[in-house]
């Protein structure tokens, strides 16, 4: 199947989204806030891990669809 210029353009956007998401995942994973409370700290640490993983999932989906 031949690809139209519009679909090539959407592929480029998906690849850009994937690159941005991977870069964001890397940076998010380096974040180390000090909240000063055990419960809040656990929530922040768990969020960092989940956010990084979700960004990687987004990058993978975007790459697969490109």
């Amino acid at each position: 199947m031949r690809r139209t210029p519009a679909s090539r353009s959407r592929d480029a956007v998906r690849l850009a989204v994937a690159a941005e998401a991977r870069e964001a995942a890397r940076e998010v994973f380096t974040l180390d806030p000090i909240l000063g409370d055990d419960s809040a700290q656990r929530a922040a640490d768990a969020f960092v891990e989940q956010a990084a993983m979700s960004l990687v999932v987004l990058a993978t989906v975007a790459e697969e669809r490109a």
Binding site: V13, A16, E20, A21, A24, V61, R65
Partner: peptide
């Protein structure tokens, strides 16, 4: 940054929807 990168995608596309949902929570 992610929302801006995904902006040209249709909001109802798989990647567009996923990017929007992730961006909102982040």
């Amino acid at each position: 940054g992610l929302a801006q990168a995904a902006y040209p995608l249709p909001a109802d596309s798989a990647t567009g929807r996923l990017a929007g949902a992730v961006c909102a929570q982040v």
